[in-house]
Design a protein around this nucleic acid. Structure first.
Lengths: 124, 124
DNA sequence: TCATTTTAGTTTGATATCAAACTATTTGGA
DNA sequence: TCCAAATAGTTTGATATCAAACTAAAATGA
């Protein structure tokens, strides 16, 4: 899946980022801004990893970092216009991904596999 | 799962290696020796990654590397007595892992989830 | 009020991982 | 026979990732 997504992104001219970066941008499509801690929680990566990932996205111009005025410990991350341009591309890759992923899998099977995997996930 | 396994290994005094190293040792329990390429294929890691992983296992005394006499390009990796000592530990961790993993999952569900995941896997 | 504790993020150091370039052999075809 | 292509591994360079140590700021409580 990783390889698939990175390959598709490259085909669409999105180069030099991986799926974790994509996860961050994707999360920012649906929220006006997120703190580093919120991103860390959503993408399930250590906060120090998030520092590195976000800094790369800033360098590439996809997002901005801005300190909170009230609580200067906090950093808000938001998507830039350049980042926003990725939305339709991500959407189409997501569609394609899911269609390949679930091809020949029935609705019942989808439901089953999700339910059982969730159960297993909760065992840890 | 990764975290679970590494934690359990540490509890049993197996320290400083990760699951990929475990995969290699585990493969060597069942084969007298394997080449680097065979290991790469079995654990689904790039050959250069395998070089690093195996070299670490050699350093820790769990395996040996030996060049083939006929074809000197080939390197054979085999488990040492120290490595063999890990067998019962791995076996018990494996049991425990599976029992946690599948707790509250019925036999039918196990069969279903494996069948469906295999189908999805084959879609790529 | 002020010291202690908690919280948010960054820095540092280590490791796994991959891809590409490279080395050394072996194999296969002209 | 000998050169080109294939094969087995290693080296190099880059990146993601984590944990631990650290910095700075806010919250808490005595």
């Amino acid at each position: 899946m990783n390889r698939f997504i990175v390959t598709e992104m490259a085909k669409n001219g999105v180069d030099g980022i991986g799926t974790s970066h994509g996860d961050i941008i994707y999360a920012l499509f649906k929220a006006p801004r997120l703190t580093m801690a919120e991103i860390s929680k959503r993408i399930r990566k250590d906060k120090s990893t998030v520092t590195a990932l976000v800094d790369k996205l800033v360098r590439l111009g996809y997002v901005t970092k801005e300190r909170d005025i009230e609580d200067t410990r906090v950093v808000h991350v938001a998507v830039t216009p350049k980042g926003r341009e990725l939305e339709p591309i991500f959407e189409s890759i997501s569609q394609e991904m899911l269609s390949v992923f679930y091809s020949s899998v029935s609705d019942q099977e989808k439901e089953d596999v999700l339910r059982i995997l969730k159960k297993i996930y909760d065992n840890f």
